[in-house]
Amino acid sequence: MAKNVLVVDDSSSVRQVVGIALKSAGYDVIEACDGRDALGKLTGQKVHLIISDVNMPNMDGITFVKEVKKLASYKFTPIIMLTTESQESKKAEGQAAGAKAWVVKPFQPAQMLAAVSKLILP
């Protein structure tokens, strides 16, 4: 069974690009449009990796990561933060919250795949 990757971004084109890249590499993709939506998607199915944007309406990425870390069943799930601001502050915030991996936007699909494959196999 292919592994599930949850892609959280308020931009549907980003979700689509990431989705296309991941599917081509053999992962299954679940999409969510913000942190609140994503938390809902975490129950009822196993998600093996989370890719989340930072700046989102309703619930931003940092808050979302903090919430994920509270969930017992997602204790060991890797989280990749997507940051457009290449500024260290966002990355640091994300890492403090528990998202140790990151990809800086804009990225090539191959870059995303490289980051993902460091963390899980399809």
Partner: peptide
């Protein structure tokens, strides 16, 4: 911000 980020994805 989102437009810039996404536009970058498509070069």
């Amino acid at each position: 911000h989102t437009i810039k980020g996404s536009a970058g994805l498509f070069g």
